[in-house]
Design a protein around this nucleic acid. Structure first.
Lengths: 173, 173
DNA sequence: TCACGTTTTCATTAAAAACTGAAAATATCG
DNA sequence: CGATATTTTCAGTTTTTAATGAAAACGTGA
């Protein structure tokens, strides 16, 4: 059934398949990672049916994961006049992808953790000594570390790629 | 059935439960995250039975996840003479935890991704124009970005906590 | 408004991941 | 070497997560 694929499409298929596996280790749904890989390497925006066809998945699955990628701001919807289909286009700029993922993970994963740590610290702020005091301190240490990390992250993602690069180069130099 | 818990243990139980939930979002097994939270806040090293009891889980589950945490270098095994049980103790220093997790994620998640990107780039290095050339470039861009990130990460994790802090402060200042 | 192309939802099914508990293996001591 | 304490494994089960496909909802143009 398979027809002559251009050689680069061969590599692309490997990329899509493997990126999907890697995604699962990152706690990301395999299909979502595959669609992202597919769109990142798509010469043109793709519609749902094209994604279904390329990945051999159902409409519901394609739809759900495309919309999830849109919710992550990693993919945007394109429409052409005179065509009521939606086309999907992934951000390809690596620095922008990085910033987007960083922001999203901060919001979904780091900030809830910080809230938890502060809550637990608050609950034990009167512990004067012993294990209770140690627990309180541990919560504060973790909070402080994550909060500082967020601050650094915020600074970096507010930078232009070139400035961030320059700054990082200074560290390495 | 529940007896008087010291107030700090109340907060601890919330921490353990919630840290478990947060862990799943990070792609980490819930029980593993809970055990880690438990040990990070344990005044003394704990044995398998204590972990089973605290979290109400089976021996097999406790065992597997404790050993997994040891494999991550987040937990170490302690033995006392005259007692053949193994006790488990988590690293509590936030900076050390960060370094350990960073190294492990680099090894498990970033490096395989870089290998994939290089492979796909190599397969398409002769593409002279068009979509094939764009694909090749995209692979190279992603590789370059991740590799640079690894370099920065390596530099940071080779630093003492104080030096890293000072360096980051300069960025924020 | 109706017909049609498209998107969205969701009950059901399938697949993957996590967990249990008990048996087997291992280690330690007299 | 037994006897005993502890760790490790793993077949079977449960729980969770993801995927399917068909029906419903939506939106647009005639």
């Amino acid at each position: 059934m398979s027809k002559e694929l251009p050689p680069w499409e061969k590599a692309r298929e490997e990329f899509v398949a493997q990126w999907g596996s890697l995604g699962t280790q990152w706690g990301i749904n395999r299909t979502m990672a595959q669609i992202h890989a597919l769109l990142m390497t798509a010469p043109e925006p793709m519609c749902t049916d094209e994604v279904m066809e390329k990945l051999q998945i159902s409409r519901g699955n394609a739809h759900t994961n495309l919309k999830e990628l849109v919710a992550w701001n990693l993919v945007r919807i394109i429409t052409h006049k005179g065509d009521r289909k939606e086309y999907f286009e992934a951000e390809k700029d690596v620095w922008k992808i990085f910033i987007t993922i960083s922001k999203e993970r901060k919001r979904r994963e780091i900030e809830p953790a910080i809230r938890l740590l502060r809550d637990c610290a608050a609950q034990t702020k009167d512990e004067a000594a012993g294990p209770g005091r140690d627990f309180h301190q541990q919560m504060k240490d973790l909070d402080e570390f994550l909060s500082f990390g967020v601050k650094v992250g915020d600074t970096v993602i507010s930078m232009k790629h070139a400035s961030a690069l320059q700054w990082a180069m200074r560290l390495l130099g």
